[in-house]
Computed example of a mutant assay.
Amino acid sequence: MPISIGLPIVTSCSVDSCGYNHGGCHAGAISVGGPHSHCNTFVDTADKGGRDETASVGACTRTDCKFNDSLICSAEGITVGASADNADCLTFEAKETAGATA
């Protein structure tokens, strides 16, 4: 069985309505994207499934996130919860842009 070496894990998920969330996220891997860092793997169901292991973050299309490195998340881990939608990456931080002032 393949192992996701070096990928960040979903350290916590507060979205109880997701079928992969039961004592933590148990999807094999999630992807994050969309205009507000949506967990694209979110499944709104009372049925619970997935793997025994905690999910990794397999892909992220939020190129404006400081943790995005060639469409892969470089954070140590992420938190998923309600924000603009049911299931969003709450670890998202916008990249600093050139010429930005503090």
Score class of each variant (00 low, 15 high):
2 P>Q: 09
2 P>H: 02
3 I>V: 11
3 I>E: 12
3 I>M: 02
7 L>F: 01
9 I>K: 08
10 V>Q: 00
10 V>A: 00
10 V>T: 00
12 S>W: 00
12 S>L: 01
12 S>K: 11
14 S>R: 08
15 V>G: 06
16 D>I: 05
17 S>F: 09
17 S>T: 14
18 C>D: 00
18 C>S: 00
19 G>C: 10
21 N>K: 04
21 N>C: 06
22 H>R: 11
23 G>I: 15
23 G>D: 11
23 G>M: 00
23 G>E: 06
24 G>R: 01
25 C>M: 05
25 C>S: 03
25 C>W: 04
26 H>P: 00
27 A>G: 01
28 G>R: 01
32 V>W: 03
37 S>Y: 04
43 V>I: 13
45 T>M: 11
48 K>Q: 11
49 G>N: 10
50 G>E: 10
50 G>D: 12
55 A>E: 04
55 A>V: 06
57 V>G: 07
58 G>R: 11
59 A>I: 12
61 T>M: 09
61 T>S: 14
64 D>T: 07
65 C>S: 07
65 C>N: 10
66 K>M: 14
67 F>D: 01
67 F>I: 00
68 N>M: 04
69 D>K: 09
70 S>H: 05
71 L>W: 07
74 S>Y: 03
74 S>K: 05
74 S>D: 11
76 E>D: 15
76 E>P: 11
79 T>K: 15
83 S>N: 13
85 D>Q: 11
85 D>E: 15
86 N>V: 08
86 N>A: 15
87 A>R: 02
87 A>P: 03
88 D>V: 12
88 D>W: 05
88 D>H: 10
90 L>A: 03
91 T>E: 07
92 F>K: 04
93 E>P: 00
94 A>P: 03
96 E>Q: 01
99 G>Q: 02
100 A>E: 13
101 T>S: 02
102 A>R: 12
